[in-house]
């Protein structure tokens, strides 16, 4: 059955935006990612048997697009140039630092680790669901999850070794 990209866009764009925003922490970047992801779908027309497969494909491509954008030097420069803090200055700086930490951490992960982290933290999937979607064993999914969190923790610890960050200041 051919994939109807327009229908997929209408039903899944919010989900893609949610993932992208959680990774980018910037509305405009997230909207760009949504467009890029569905353009890739339009170009490649992946063979997706069911909506679950479409969601899995979208999650994987969203992660890749976000990482690609981060790695693009021009996008990085544009992000810095177009940054306009909306909250108070101190809050904005802190949020930006935290977002940069997250960028660095997510960029350092393998794709499977990132997908497990996205499924767990953004979609509240169980390890069983994640394992089924990625075609891996449940213990492997748990290992990826812990390693991904460890990478984030290391970044946070390196950036700010004060105990309050390690103990979950943002929670």
């Amino acid at each position: 059955m051919p994939l109807d990209v327009e229908t997929c866009f209408r039903t899944q764009r919010a989900r893609v935006y949610r993932w992208a925003y959680a990774m980018c922490r910037r509305h405009d970047d997230a909207l760009d990612v949504v467009q890029d992801v569905f353009l890739r779908m339009l170009d490649r027309r992946p063979l997706l048997a069911n909506p679950a497969a479409a969601i899995a494909w979208l999650r994987r491509v969203t992660g890749r697009v976000v990482i690609d954008n981060w790695r693009a030097e021009s996008a990085r420069a544009a992000r810095q140039a177009s940054h306009v803090p909306t909250a108070s200055s101190a809050d904005a700086v802190e949020a930006r630092e935290l977002a940069d930490l997250l960028h660095a951490a997510l960029e350092s992960l393998s794709e499977q680790q990132r997908l497990v982290l996205m499924g767990k933290c953004y979609d509240q999937m169980t390890f069983q669901q994640i394992a089924d979607e990625l075609g891996i064993a449940v213990p492997t999914a748990k290992t990826h999850y812990l390693r991904a969190l460890s990478a984030v923790r290391e970044r946070v610890r390196t950036a700010d070794p004060t105990p309050d960050i390690q103990a979950g200041r943002t929670s």
Partner: peptide, 21 residues
């Protein structure tokens, strides 16, 4: 747990995402 909180911070709801897009 702190790392998970950092990752999950600013995750918007699907309704909010629907509105934004």
């Amino acid at each position: 747990e702190a790392a998970a909180a950092v990752v999950e911070a600013d995750v918007v709801s699907l309704e909010e995402a629907e509105r934004q897009t």
